[in-house]
């Protein structure tokens, strides 16, 4: 994706970058073969710009990283999990509208 505001996380840096983060982090678990994941990708980029400095927007490719999705019981994508201080605040499965994601983000702002 063109937007540099979205960060890409892996099994290796998940703890440092997401669980131990100062700011809340929304992680988009996705894969290239998932149509709905591609559908929400532009919206995820938009959110990353709009919430810059308030919420970190991250993506994890489940094809390349299996241990983190396994740990959070993810068996469907796209799944968005909102973390704050290492805790799961909200979890959304499926391609949903921006309003629904913003409602979730409001819980940590």
């Amino acid at each position: 994706m063109a937007d540099e505001k979205v960060i890409h996380v892996t099994d290796g840096d998940f703890e440092t970058t997401v669980l131990n983060a100062e700011l809340p982090v929304l992680v988009d678990f996705w894969a290239a073969w998932c149509g709905p994941c591609r559908a929400i990708a532009p919206m995820i980029d938009e959110l990353a710009s709009e919430y810059d400095g308030k919420v970190v927007i991250a993506k994890m490719n489940v094809d390349e990283n299996s241990s983190t999705p396994g740990k959070f019981g993810i068996r469907a994508i796209p799944t968005l999990i909102l973390f704050n201080k290492g805790n799961v605040v909200d979890q959304i499965t499926g391609a949903v509208g921006k309003a629904m994601i913003e409602t979730a983000l409001a819980k940590v702002l």
Partner: peptide
């Protein structure tokens, strides 16, 4: 839903 219940085989099949 999302924990084994799915409506999209191409999204979730690989799990």
């Amino acid at each position: 839903a999302g924990r084994g219940v799915s409506y999209c085989a191409t999204c979730d099949g690989p799990f």
